[in-house]
Computed example of a mutant assay.
Amino acid sequence: MARPPRVLFLERRTYRRRRLADLARLMPVIGLVLLLVPLLWQEGAGGMPTSRAILWIFGVWVVLVAATAWLASRRLESELDAQGTPRPLPEADRGARR
């Protein structure tokens, strides 16, 4: 006899925390891909000059720093309540942290 499908319910705060962690893990990969884009540009007739490549690399670096700071602030914000004290972890996360 087949069992009915089990419905998985994740608390919204836990789900968002995990998605933010996933995005934080992807940031180095995204950064690497964006930093390698100037290698595809060919200098010469109608190509991009080296100065543009340097500006691109610096711009990507600034965006990565800002995005990482935003992710960190979102994580800190989600872990603090209105008074600034840490919220207790849900039961599901307590076992994973030990």
Results as ranks from 00 to 15, higher is better:
residue 21 A to T: 11
residue 17 R to I: 07
residue 76 L to P: 01
residue 84 G to C: 10
residue 71 L to Y: 10
residue 51 S to E: 10
residue 59 G to H: 02
residue 75 R to I: 07
residue 39 L to G: 11
residue 74 R to P: 00
residue 34 L to H: 00
residue 96 A to T: 15
residue 49 P to N: 02
residue 53 A to V: 03
residue 33 V to K: 12
residue 65 V to L: 14
residue 44 G to P: 08
residue 84 G to I: 11
residue 38 P to N: 00
residue 76 L to H: 05
residue 11 E to V: 11
residue 84 G to E: 07
residue 38 P to L: 00
residue 14 T to W: 12
residue 64 L to R: 06
residue 33 V to H: 14
residue 78 S to D: 13
residue 33 V to Q: 14
residue 86 P to K: 10
residue 47 G to T: 05
residue 36 L to E: 05
residue 23 L to N: 02
residue 28 P to Y: 01
residue 89 L to M: 12
residue 93 D to N: 10
residue 64 L to F: 03
residue 13 R to K: 05
residue 15 Y to L: 14
residue 7 V to F: 01
residue 41 W to G: 04
residue 4 P to T: 00
residue 7 V to Y: 00
residue 90 P to I: 13
residue 59 G to F: 04
residue 72 A to D: 01
residue 95 G to S: 15
residue 97 R to S: 09
residue 77 E to A: 15
residue 85 T to V: 15
residue 40 L to V: 07
residue 87 R to H: 07
residue 16 R to V: 09
residue 54 I to H: 06
residue 2 A to M: 08
residue 98 R to S: 10
residue 86 P to V: 15
residue 91 E to T: 07
residue 30 I to E: 03
residue 17 R to E: 13
residue 44 G to V: 04
residue 7 V to R: 03
residue 43 E to W: 09
residue 30 I to L: 10
residue 83 Q to Y: 15
residue 11 E to C: 11
residue 48 M to K: 08
residue 63 V to E: 00
